[in-house]
């Protein structure tokens, strides 16, 4: 294999296993987050082009249990993307290359533990502020 082949063949045969799912979910989460980013900028800027009450009514809508749950999904997308990104930066620095699955599992453990704090807060908020808890969804 020539040096050129060694470069161009990087990735061949990677379409399997844990690394494939890490890559695919990283990409899906990234696309979701970039779409959310621009939606977020539009919603927050509504205070400027429409008025304070427009933004406040948007926040009232986002306090609905359905949106609190969607927010939790968004937090998961952020945490997965961020912690898998930490793994990628570590790989770029050559750290943990020989134990990359362990590094992945450790990063995901941090992500899941962090998510638990956000989930606890979200579910106790729904239980306390919406009579019937998730029943308020319908």
């Amino acid at each position: 294999m020539s040096p050129v082949d060694a470069t161009t063949n990087v990735g061949a045969g990677n379409w399997k296993g844990l690394g494939m799912w890490a890559w695919l979910l990283f990409r899906i989460a990234g696309i979701v987050l970039v779409v959310y980013l621009f939606a977020h900028i539009v919603v927050i800027s509504s205070a400027r082009w429409s008025g304070h009450s427009t933004l406040n009514s948007a926040f009232t809508l986002f306090d609905h249990p359905l949106f609190v749950l969607l927010d939790l999904l968004l937090v998961w997308a952020v945490l997965f993307h961020a912690l898998n990104g930490v793994r990628i930066v570590l790989m770029d620095f050559g750290l943990g290359i020989h134990r990359h699955k362990l590094v992945f599992v450790a990063c995901m453990a941090v992500a899941v533990i962090s998510l638990c704090f956000f989930a606890f807060k979200a579910f106790s908020y729904i239980a306390a502020h919406h009579a019937g808890g998730l029943g308020g969804l319908v």
Binding site: V78, F118, K121
Partner: peptide, 26 residues
Amino acid sequence: TAVVLIVGLMTHLIATHIINLGHLSF
């Protein structure tokens, strides 16, 4: 920017989703 986002976004998420959940307004 990834490093800036990890620090900044965690601060942002803790401020909005944990400390001020249910109190967000103008």
